[in-house]
């Protein structure tokens, strides 16, 4: 039953990336700092989308595109497109880059930039 509920929550959305001023200011400071993760490892969805699929602000979600995936923190805001997911431009959005992504709840921890870097070599 639990697994079924989880399955229902898996949602496919169009990926939109954007330059987030707060994220940029920490990227300019130090990309290997926790603050960078806090501002970059984020996926924002519209309140209507969150309501439809039962997502909660602040929960950790697994974001996948093709065979790649990363765990990000979900945020709910009207700045996201109604039918899409918004990710600040950074190594996270680059790693997940594609037209569409899927989002589902996870118990895992947020992926770090160093974990991503390992996948580039």
């Amino acid at each position: 039953m639990l697994r079924f509920a989880k399955y229902l929550k898996k949602v496919e959305l169009k990926l939109v990336t954007y330059r987030d001023g707060f994220q940029v200011s920490v990227a300019v400071k130090d990309k290997f700092d926790d603050e960078f993760v806090e501002k970059s490892a984020v996926v924002i969805i519209h309140p209507d989308t969150a309501k439809t699929f039962g997502f909660k602000d602040g929960q950790i979600v697994k974001v996948s595109s093709y065979e790649r995936c990363a765990n990000l923190r979900l945020k709910i805001s009207e700045i996201a497109p109604e039918n899409g997911a918004l990710i600040p431009k950074s190594i996270y959005s680059c790693y997940l880059y594609s037209d569409r992504i899927t989002i589902e709840p996870t118990d895992g921890e947020i992926t770090t930039p160093n974990e991503l870097l390992e996948r580039y070599t």
Binding site: A27, D30, K31, F32, R68, K89, S90, I91, C94, Y95, L96, Y97, P113, L117, R119, Y120, T121
Partner: peptide
Amino acid sequence: PLNSMPFEVAKRLVKLNLIVIDPKVSF
């Protein structure tokens, strides 16, 4: 570029001989 280029492209970048001139540490 690792912070701005799609993964599939950036993966090819790291295979090159890379010379980075930068005031800061970057990916």
